[in-house]
Design a protein around this nucleic acid. Structure first.
Lengths: 332, 332
DNA sequence: AAATTAAATGTAAACGTTTACATTGTTGAC
DNA sequence: GTCAACAATGTAAACGTTTACATTTAATTT
């Protein structure tokens, strides 16, 4: 492996000069610069990142911490983060916490010792405390999917309240009255989507029934069980809104199992577009989040901040889209 | 950040001794060991991985290189790799090459300079050359999803030929005669699954029609287009086998669009179980790969090899499972 | 009890960079 | 023509570990 010393010798300069050339520092003649670059190319020199990292206390690795990598939402986001990072010369370490505090702690410890340059985080509700405790904000952080105001971080968000409002209103327009909501427990997004849900009911003079508001860990199977319990009631709902695709999947399975027909017996609409949303029959009406853009924006914000730590932090709110298909009762 | 020197001072020993204690090297008294560990705990000392990495030329990061992270197969695998790695104290960098040689090159360069401890790779057909050129096998490698014999690597595989044989045979049992196959281009798994497909036809005295054998880049949309072209033929197939879930998804969409009914007008069966396979109606008959196990096995093999480079390499072939649902014509 | 060996520990070099500081060379002001 | 100021370059320390080698201490052999 060729090192900076080799380049320096071949170019007849000191290592300091080579370093200066490579990091575009001033005070080096154009002629020398050319010469060094030629050698670099000829020897195919690539700086040792580990050494760079040790000396300069920086790195070209960012971390992405998600609670559930099984969730298509995070998969898309992670893909986007990866793309953006790679373009900008960064690697990304992916950490999956499974909403498990122990795993989360382990994950944060790993990151700390690896000296990552920054973190993109989608915190669970309790996560955030655990997090700042261990991590103490030494490094730039971008929060996605959740608003955090009391910390010095960037945010990439969507408007959960109004998005939920829009899709639930759409259900209401179809005449559904007994609309159930299944929300992800543990996350603030679930909370916000519930708010939008309630507001839509209220604005349409529908009195929400507590019995029809459920919380479920965002896993397919839990969604299934929750939905099943809703469907087995005497006064079962005539429509269900689910706050993410895992819950939607479980709910649809429960509806199938109950031999009910969508949307005649029961309508369904959900947050998050997925690969299978238009594969099922009837196709699923959803709020489509700009997942790819969320990830990309987060990565870009993070790297900008890494390069300029004094940058004021910002909150980017991205637009969602109501994608109307047939599960809500719309025809065609 | 507390460093080894701090620990050494607090424990009244030299840094060398602390290092020895921490890496379980011999030649240190039990009493001293205890004392050092106590200090380590008290100060919450955590070795700086970057420094360790620089000095010892090792690291606790492994890389997972996949061609398409949108593919549910790789998502599951990556999840498993992540889990196993984390348990063993490793971080994983995920690289997505998108089958794009340029991206792949970039990715490998990034890895080289980050000094990863090893690589788990699912190479595309041409990938492998590109790969060894850049990477020159300095570090341990585990190949997944593809057999590579001429290199000193471990392999984690499934038996593609016999799996495809099994599922296609099942279609044949239902009486389908004009069975089309849509295979992933660029990958050897596609090739092998085609072999199994052909063998099943042959063993049942069905003459394969070249017109019904298609190759498609493994993307949903390409699968859609490929399937559409098959369905628009006068002599359209009465069953379709797809060699992965992305192609299956596209194919199902095409079937829907053509207003054909599954399995009456046309049956379908595919490689790869996914979240939506039992969500669609009729549910999809598939070959289920032990994706999680593949990832976990790969990670474990890799880390074992990292710790013992002289270990003889092995090839692990995992079993698949034919999951019979209704899209093949089975009832209930 | 001296000599030999082995165990325990310490000292300092090394890993490949970046960078503070020192040195030399050049330019322009007076 | 001297001096100041600055540009260009070099020297060497520093980053936080591991580890070869040296040293001290203890155990064993003679």
């Amino acid at each position: 492996m060729v090192k900076i010393k080799d380049v320096a010798e071949a170019a007849g300069v000191s290592t300091a000069t080579v370093s200066r050339v490579l990091s575009n520092k001033p005070h080096v003649r154009e002629e020398v610069k050319k010469r060094v670059m030629a050698v670099v190319k000829k020897l195919n020199y690539q700086p040792n990142r580990v050494a760079q990292s040790l000396r300069s206390n920086t790195s070209r690795i960012i971390a992405l911490i998600v609670a559930d990598i099984e969730n298509p939402f995070f998969q898309r986001v992670s893909r986007a983060v990866d793309d953006a990072a790679q373009e900008l010369g960064y690697n990304v370490i992916l950490c999956n916490t499974d909403e498990d505090p122990i795993k989360e702690k382990k994950c944060l410890d790993l990151l700390r010792v690896e000296n990552v340059a920054g973190i993109i985080l989608s915190p669970t509700r309790k996560g955030i405390d655990n997090f700042t405790e261990t991590y103490s904000l030494e490094k730039p952080i971008v929060m996605i999917d959740r608003h955090v105001s009391n910390f010095d971080v960037d945010n990439v968000l969507i408007d959960n309240v109004s998005s939920a409002y829009a899709i639930v209103s759409h259900l209401i327009e179809h005449g559904y009255k007994r609309i159930a909501g299944v929300f992800g427990a543990e996350s603030t997004t679930g909370q916000e989507r519930r708010q939008g849900f309630l507001k839509a009911l209220k604005d349409n003079d529908i009195k929400p029934s507590q019995d029809l508001i459920k919380y479920s860990t965002p896993r397919e199977n839990d969604g299934f069980n929750t939905a099943l319990s809703l469907l087995q009631r005497n006064d079962r709902p005539d429509a269900i809104f689910t706050s993410n695709s895992l819950l939607a999947s479980g709910t649809i399975r429960a509806i199938r199992e109950s031999k009910l027909s969508i949307p005649n017996d029961i309508a369904i609409a959900s947050f998050d577009d997925t690969s299978w949303a238009q594969l099922i029959d009837p196709a699923l009406t959803v709020i489509e989040q700009p997942t790819y853009e969320i990830g990309r924006t987060a990565a870009e914000l993070l790297i900008k901040r890494i390069n300029d730590p004094s940058r004021s932090n910002r909150e980017v709110v991205l637009k969602t889209k109501l994608v109307i298909r047939q599960s809500c009762g719309c025809s065609n």
